[in-house]
Simulated scan of single mutants.
Amino acid sequence: MKVLMFYELAEDGLAKVPAHMAGHQARLREFHGRGVLLMAGPYGAPPVGALGVFTSRAAAEEFARDDPFMLNGIVGRCSIHDWNEGLA
């Protein structure tokens, strides 16, 4: 089982992305390097949110807790869901 984390942009979130992208990307690399973040990226054109695939709920919650995008109002809503992948 994997865990999906969905970020939905705050109404004014996209405008704040450039100021916090470096810190967010560093966090992505850290968690990916630890092997607990399998993939992540924005969705929509222009982006309306992002999706991350984690190996555990604890890792997803840890990521979100101190992510610059969460701390600086870029994300309006975060949800975390268990996912039983159909193809592995």
Rank of each mutant, 00 (worst) to 15 (best):
K2W: 04
L4V: 12
M5Y: 06
F6E: 10
F6L: 12
F6T: 10
E8C: 02
E8F: 10
L9Q: 02
A10P: 04
E11F: 07
E11Y: 04
E11D: 12
D12S: 09
D12C: 00
G13H: 04
G13C: 03
L14E: 11
L14R: 15
L14S: 12
L14Q: 11
A15H: 06
A15L: 07
A15I: 02
K16Y: 05
V17P: 01
V17L: 05
P18C: 08
A19D: 13
A19N: 09
A19V: 02
H20V: 05
M21H: 09
G23T: 04
G23I: 01
Q25H: 07
A26G: 03
R27F: 00
L28T: 01
L28S: 00
E30M: 11
F31C: 05
F31P: 00
H32G: 08
G33D: 05
G33N: 05
G33V: 05
G33F: 07
R34A: 10
R34F: 00
R34Q: 13
V36Y: 00
L37M: 03
M39W: 10
A40E: 02
G41H: 09
P42T: 12
A45K: 14
A45V: 13
P46Y: 10
P46F: 09
P46D: 09
P47C: 00
P47Y: 04
V48F: 02
V48N: 07
V48P: 00
G49K: 06
A50S: 14
A50W: 07
A50R: 01
L51W: 02
T55Y: 05
T55M: 00
T55L: 03
R57N: 06
A58C: 05
A58D: 13
A59I: 00
A59L: 06
A59S: 09
A60P: 07
A60H: 08
E62A: 15
E62G: 08
F63W: 10
F63Y: 15
R65Q: 15
D66V: 14
D66W: 13
D67T: 11
M70Q: 14
L71K: 15
L71M: 11
L71R: 15
N72Q: 05
I74A: 05
I74R: 01
V75M: 09
G76N: 07
G76F: 08
R77C: 08
R77G: 05
R77E: 13
C78V: 15
S79G: 08
I80V: 15
I80Q: 05
D82A: 15
D82Q: 14
D82E: 14
W83M: 08
N84S: 15
N84H: 15
E85R: 13
G86L: 14
L87F: 14
L87E: 11
